[in-house]
Structures are given as structure tokens and as C-alpha cells.
Design a protein around this nucleic acid. Structure first.
Length: 758
DNA sequence: CCTACTTGTTTTTTT
DNA sequence: AACAAGTAGG
């Protein structure tokens, strides 16, 4: 089981019992070690079912299961191949297979079974996704009469979520709040939580918190989990937050067989409450632990690692990556004019790679924000380059899909008011804002949820005319769906589409896109039938017979998967397509060719980076991106980028400046010189030759001409040489920060004409 | 009281 | 460009 492993890897694999931390740099064979370790445990006689491995994404869970199975061969039951939508991890609940899940899906499954022990939840509880959460926050803001501009729902939600991740309750949040604003936010938090409970709903954060509560308040449940899972492994440990750590600790407290794997240098989720400090906590709570460090990189070329080390070096210089891999092509940094040129240039690259027989599935385009994918999608469609966007707007976030799912949710639970409100007047049935408000008020007076009120006798009293008819209609549709809940899941989905009259509504309200949306609904139906197939397959007994993980019904399983799945695993990975994704979603993946686009100031590092970890987390994020590459790495940045409506001038990322002096090839878009080691020799950097002396005519009060922005006056200057920055007010209007060495600016004599007032 | 149109805001990252 | 909230007609 330990063949082909280096000594450090070998000792991690053969470590039998007791706490173990594996600090694994990028490309050091971490997944290999984890899978070998699981396989090793099994072959030494440990029952697979007593192994719990927690991964960061469903995709990683599936990958790990696949690889473990390859190692164990017949020792484990075979997994239905290509189970697509559900993924193998849905099937991991029999005796022969270790349990491989994300924290969230592990919690969701356990809660489905045990949540009735926690007041006031029931086993039919709903899982609220971020859209649902936002909706709920909106309701809270309204009921507390807080103005949406001073309390932006998104920011409010993230504050609430932050508190929850810190395991700070609403009361405590209020006590700890120093400012009026924070106290108001704590009130929002309080009400938000109250509403969730009223509606029998848990948001993503609650899944974790409720499981902690369950373990603490019901020792018998914890006890049964402890004896069931004798070995606990947690991957990407640097990105676990407090409740997640607690869950792992509670499970492993007694038998001490906790193995955590991660890399503090790749911690990129502090904004979600994650902290590499959990390594410290682990060391304290498990003082008898062993630590194994994996630092030989098997993935990347020395050139790529040079860039990675330089990026990491400024912060954690102590740990260097090394490799015995052969040299590869040089890392390139390409400047282009704007995002369209960027997309075209990269499409060229991809086409020439493909001509060299590079598989498209070995190419990834990474970016800081999802919005950047759009231009590339357009270009790739035009050039017929097959691609798949990972993350971003997922299938289940589409309006039409969410609408139909809302029908199912509202029919299933009389408490899921977010779902009910979503479809109250969709399709339009003459129930306007005022009528809805009346209905909501009446329900509140009757101390019922909207769903309960709708089904009660006096529901229609407050309404007349069209609105009354509409509500009646809605009630009948839902009643129809509820009555037939004995039907198969697929039939329920089909019925929801039918009974709601959704298709005609689509055709009318979406003249542009109704056909595509209709196809999406067809896909939803087939996803439902796929879920069902798996439930009725030979594996059903494995899922249903396991009392700890019993699935109450197909619809619950369906909704759970939909809420927790990322669309990554829906895509057939067999096809040859270029992958597009954010730097965050790229974590844990690797590709032969990696292109990181938009390596620009205010994008990476992002202008709104979190206050807690700040710019260093942005650096680690780029580090993660860079270390995804096996043989070739390209980074691009533009001079202009369109944002919302305007074109904005862009500067190269300050991280690129730090990379000067490495073997990177910096290249300019239009006929520019090709230079090694930096920007200085670039003929387009007008100030290149004299940017190191201060007599360059670039000082406050002086006038400059910018190639694109026109004339402007320098307001202030900071720094020297390559890092000299100026702030300029342009005649065309607007002030801009520029880095002298890179911006196309020339000193000019002050204009004698008057300023144009326009 | 409902619908269609106009106006303002929006994007950081994800389970 | 896409979506929610706000405003005027029916």
C-alpha cells in the first residue's frame, strides 16, 4: 500500500491511531496520502463504514472516493458509474464504503434524522440557500423598518453570518455591540433567527451550528456517532471554521483518531469564518499529536514554483517549495488592451495548444470574480471552443428552476414561507403587492405562517375580487401537489410545472429566452428521475437501512442535494472542455495549463478584500491559483476593463511588481518589446529609463499626458522608482491613481487654455 | 388595486 | 446588463 511514496508520505499513510496533522504544500501528494491512508486502514482490518472523511467540496469527496476505490478494488462495493447529478457520494452509506462528505452535507444528513430532538425543528426542515437567506433578511429589514440603503441586505447578511460562524448568539451579539449600528444589526440577527425557527428552516451556517447543538444536548446521538466513526479525517483543515472544528473535535474526543490535512499558506476563506488557527487549537486539544510535513512538490515545474515561492516568500519565507521536476516553459505575463483582447488572446493560446494535441480538459482559466467569465464565454462560443463554467450562476439558481422548486417546497412544508412568497403571484394571478401585504398581516394576526394561513378557513376573508380568486387558485394548486405526494418524485416535479401553469407563463413573460428556460425545466425533471433511480436501485437499501442516515423521502433528498451541491459535479467531465472558474473554486484542482486573467490592482488584490485577513489573503489566493499549474502558467492583465457601464483604466497587480526579477517573461500586447525580468526595458513604459531618478518631471503640480486618459495635473506622488505612484486629476474629469513606471504617461507643459467646464 | 414602465443599484470569494 | 424598488395609467 505504501509503494511509490516518499518517506514523509509513507509515515503519514502508515500512521495508525492517535491524532495526526499533515501539513501539505501544494502538489505534495496530499490527496494521494489521504486515499492511501484510508485504503491502508481498511486493509489493516478497519471497517470502511467506521471511517469518516470530510472534504471541502462534493467534487473532492467524489474524487477521493473514486481514488480510494481504485486502490481497494474489490474490497469495497462498486459505485454506480456516472451517477452524474447525485454523484457517488450519495451512495456512500453502506457497510463497505467509507463516508466521504462535506461538513455541510454530513450535517444535513444527520439533522434530517435527528433534528426533531431540537425544538422547534421537524425532520421536514428546509435548507435555505443564499437567495432564500437574502429574501429573509429583506423581510426582517422591512419589519424592523430599517432602510435598505443604510443596511444593505448582502452586507447585513454577511455580518449575521459572521456572528454565527463565531458562534455568537443574537443576545451576545447585541451585548458585545459598541455602536448603535451594530446593535441594530444584532436586532436583525435576532429576528432573522427567530424567523428561521418559525419557518422550520436552517441556513448553511445553521447546519453546522445545529449539529453542534445536537451533539451537546443529546449525548446519546454523539455517543452513537463516536462509536460509528472510529476514524475521522478532515481535509483542507486551514479552511475550517469554529463550528466545523468543534464537530470534528467532538467526534474524535474519545478515540483520538483525528487526522487533519491542510496548508496554512492556502487559507483563503477567512471571510467565511475559517481560520488556520484551528491548527493551533488542534495542537492544544490533542497534545499527543504527530505532525508530518509534506513539502516536495510533484506537480509543477521549477519556473512555476519560483513564482509561487516569491509570492509566498514575502509573508512566510520560512517554508520553501522544492521539486525534482524538469524545467518547463517560462511563466508569462501578458498585457492586453482590454477584456475583449484578453479573451481573444487567450482563445489564440488555447487554439494553438489544441493544435499541439493538448487536451482541453487540461486547460483552466481562473479569475478573481465570476463576472469576468462573461467575455470569455462569448469569445469561446464564437470560436467554438468547448468550455464549462464552474460555479457562478448554477443550474439550480436559475429563476425558472427556483420557481418550480418553490412550488415543491411550499407544497411539502406549510412553514416554508420564503418558497411560498416566491410563487405567490408567479405566474401572475392578480395578487398584487397590497393583497400580499394584507394576507401577510392577516397571517401574522392569526399567529400562523403564511402556508398555514393559506390552508386555513378564514384565509380569504381579507381579500376580494381578483386577488381573492388568485389566492384560491394558488391554494388549489398547492393542495393538488400535496395530495399527490404519494406519487413519484418525477411525477411531482412534472405536476408542479403543469398545475402552476408555468409554461404558458414563461412563454408570455420571457419572449427572448422561454425556450431555453423550458429546456432547463425538462432538465430538472430528468434530475428528479435520476435521484429516484438511485433511490430505487440496489443501493437504496444501503441508504435506507442505515438508521443514522435514513432519508425520509425522495423529495427531501432531492432538495437537500440541490441546496448543497455545486454544479461542478453535474457536468459530464468526460468531455473535452476548457474549465473556467474563480480562484477560490480552483482550490484542490490541478491542470497542465493554467491561465489567470485580470491580474490587476483592485481585482487581485481585490479592492474589497476582507478587513480581517486583508491583503495577505489575496496573496494566498493568487498563490493557490499559481500552484494549480503543472507545466505552463500564463497571467494576463488589461489596460482597460469595462465595469457596469464604463470603461475603467486598469493597473497591473502589485503582486506582479513583486515578481520582477524572476524568470517571468513580461510581454506587452501591441508590438511591444519582449523583455525578461521586468518592465524596465519595455518601450511602451514611457518613464522606464528615468523612473529611478526624481528628475523625471513627475511631481505634484506638474502636468502629464496619459495615452488614453488625456491631460491631467498631478495632485500627489508617493514612492520611488518602479513603485512610484501618483494621483492625477484629468481634464476629462475624474481622479486616478497611477503607477508611473507602468502607466503610459509623459510629462508635458501646463496647458494655457482654460479648463473645459464640461 | 393591478400591471407596465422608469429609475437606481449592483459584484468578492462559497457551503 | 440585469434586477429590484418606485411611479404612472388602467
Amino acid at each position: 500500500m505504501a509503494e511509490g511514496l516518499n518517506p514523509a508520505q509513507k509515515s503519514a499513510v502508515t500512521h495508525q491511531t492517535g491524532p495526526l496533522a499533515i501539513i501539505a504544500g501544494p502538489g505534495s501528494g496530499k490527496t494521494r496520502v489521504m486515499t492511501h491512508r484510508i485504503a491502508q486502514l481498511v486493509s489493516s482490518g478497519v471497517s470502511p463504514a467506521s471511517i469518516l472523511a470530510i472534504t471541502f467540496t462534493n467534487k473532492a469527496a467524489d474524487e477521493m472516493l473514486r481514488r480510494t476505490q481504485a486502490l481497494l478494488g474489490a474490497a469495497m462495493s462498486t459505485v454506480l458509474p456516472g451517477s452524474g447529478f447525485l454523484g457517488p457520494s450519495a451512495l456512500d452509506l453502506d457497510d463497505e464504503t467509507p463516508v466521504l462528505r462535506t461538513f455541510h452535507s454530513f450535517c444535513a444528513r444527520l439533522l434530517r434524522r435527528y433534528i426533531h430532538r431540537l425544538e422547534p425543528y421537524t425532520s421536514r426542515f428546509s435548507i435555505y440557500d443564499s437567495a432564500d437567506q437574502l429574501q429573509l433578511i429583506g423581510e426582517v429589514l422591512k419589519s424592523l423598518q430599517l432602510d435598505r440603503t443604510s443596511f444593505p441586505p448582502r452586507a447585513t447578511l454577511s455580518k449575521v453570518s459572521h456572528w454565527k460562524n463565531q458562534m455568537t448568539g443574537p443576545e451576545q451579539a447585541s451585548e458585545n455591540s459598541a455602536t448603535f449600528r451594530d446593535r441594530e444589526l444584532a436586532r436583525v440577527y435576532f429576528r432573522y433567527q427567530e424567523l428561521l425557527e418559525e419557518r422550520d428552516a436552517a441556513d448553511f451556517d445553521d447546519l453546522l451550528l445545529l449539529l453542534v447543538r445536537l451533539f451537546r444536548e443529546h449525548p446519546d446521538v454523539l455517543e452513537s456517532m463516536r462509536s460509528r466513526f472510529q476514524f475521522v479525517l478532515v481535509d483542507e483543515f486551514q479552511d475550517t471554521n469554529r463550528p466545523q472544528y468543534l464537530i470534528a473535535k467532538l467526534l474524535a474526543d474519545e478515540h483520538r483518531n483525528l487526522c487533519v490535512t491542510g496548508d496554512p499558506d492556502q487559507s483563503i476563506y477567512s471571510w467565511r469564518g475559517a481560520s488556520a488557527d484551528n491548527f493551533l487549537r488542534f495542537k492544544e486539544d490533542f497534545p499527543e499529536h504527530s505532525i508530518i510535513t509534506l513539502d516536495q512538490n510533484y506537480r509543477s515545474t521549477p519556473q512555476i514554483l519560483e513564482v509561487a515561492s516569491r509570492l509566498a516568500g514575502t509573508e512566510f519565507g520560512e517554508r520553501k517549495l522544492f521539486t525534482e521536476n524538469d524545467a518547463g516553459p517560462e511563466v508569462r505575463v501578458q498585457q492586453v488592451r482590454d477584456e475583449r483582447k484578453e479573451a481573444a488572446w487567450i482563445a489564440d493560446c488555447i487554439e494553438s495548444w489544441k493544435a499541439d494535441a493538448v487536451s482541453a480538459s487540461e486547460i483552466a482559466v481562473l479569475y478573481r470574480v465570476n463576472a469576468l467569465s462573461r467575455t470569455f464565454e462569448e469569445e469561446f462560443v464564437r470560436r467554438r471552443i468547448l468550455y464549462s463554467v464552474i460555479g457562478g450562476m448554477s443550474f439550480y439558481e436559475r429563476k425558472e428552476v427556483k420557481d418550480i422548486l418553490a412550488y415543491l417546497r411550499a407544497a411539502r412544508s406549510t412553514k416554508d414561507d420564503v418558497a411560498l412568497l416566491r410563487i405567490f403571484n408567479v405566474p401572475a394571478r392578480g395578487i398584487g403587492k397590497v393583497s400580499i401585504e394584507r394576507f401577510v398581516d392577516a397571517a401574522r394576526d392569526a399567529r400562523r405562517t403564511l402556508g398555514e394561513h393559506l390552508r386555513s378557513d378564514g384565509a380569504l376573508d381579507a381579500l376580494r375580487g381578483k386577488a381573492r380568486k388568485g389566492v384560491e387558485q394558488l391554494r388549489d394548486v398547492l393542495a393538488k401537489l400535496t395530495q399527490t405526494s404519494a406519487n413519484s418524485l418525477t411525477e411531482q416535479v412534472e405536476l408542479a410545472i403543469q398545475a402552476s401553469g408555468y409554461l404558458p407563463h414563461l412563454e408570455k413573460s420571457e419572449p427572448e429566452s422561454w425556450q431555453e428556460r423550458q429546456r432547463n425545466l425538462e432538465e430538472l425533471v430528468s434530475a428528479a428521475s435520476e435521484t429516484e433511480e438511485i433511490l430505487t436501485s440496489v443501493y437504496a437499501s444501503a441508504i435506507v437501512d442505515d438508521p443514522d442516515f435514513e432519508v425520509t423521502d425522495a423529495l427531501s433528498l432531492f432538495l437537500e442535494r440541490i441546496a448543497l451541491i455545486t454544479d461542478a459535479e453535474m457536468k459530464s467531465s468526460e468531455e473535452e472542455q476548457v474549465s473556467l472558474m474563480t480562484l477560490h473554486s480552483a482550490k484542490g484542482l490541478e491542470y497542465n495549463k493554467v491561465i489567470i486573467i485580470g491580474v490587476e490592482e483592485n481585482l487581485i488584490p481585490h479592492s474589497r478584500h476582507g478587513e480581517i485577513e486583508g491583503i495577505e489573503e489575496e496573496r494566498r489566493l493568487l498563490y493557490v491559483g499559481v500552484t494549480r499549474a503543472r507545466e505552463e502558467l500564463i497571467m494576463t492583465h488589461t489596460s482597460w476593463r469595462r465595469r457596469f457601464h464604463e470603461r475603467e483604466p486598469r493597473l497591473p497587480s502589485s503582486f506582479l511588481t513583486e515578481l520582477e526579477g524572476t524568470s517571468i517573461a513580461f510581454e506587452r500586447a501591441e508590438g511591444g518589446g519582449f523583455s525578461k525580468g521586468g518592465w524596465q526595458q519595455d518601450p511602451f513604459s514611457y518613464n522606464a529609463e528615468n523612473s529611478h531618478d526624481e528628475e523625471d518631471g513627475i511631481h505634484p503640480g506638474a502636468w502629464i499626458r496619459h495615452e488614453i486618459l488625456g491631460k491631467g495635473v498631478i495632485l500627489s506622488a508617493q514612492g520611488h522608482g518602479a513603485s512610484k505612484r501618483i494621483s492625477v486629476r484629468f481634464e476629462q474629469g475624474g481622479e486616478k491613481q497611477l503607477v508611473v513606471a507602468y502607466a503610459p504617461v509623459t510629462p508635458i507643459s501646463p496647458p494655457d487654455e482654460e479648463w473645459d467646464s464640461s
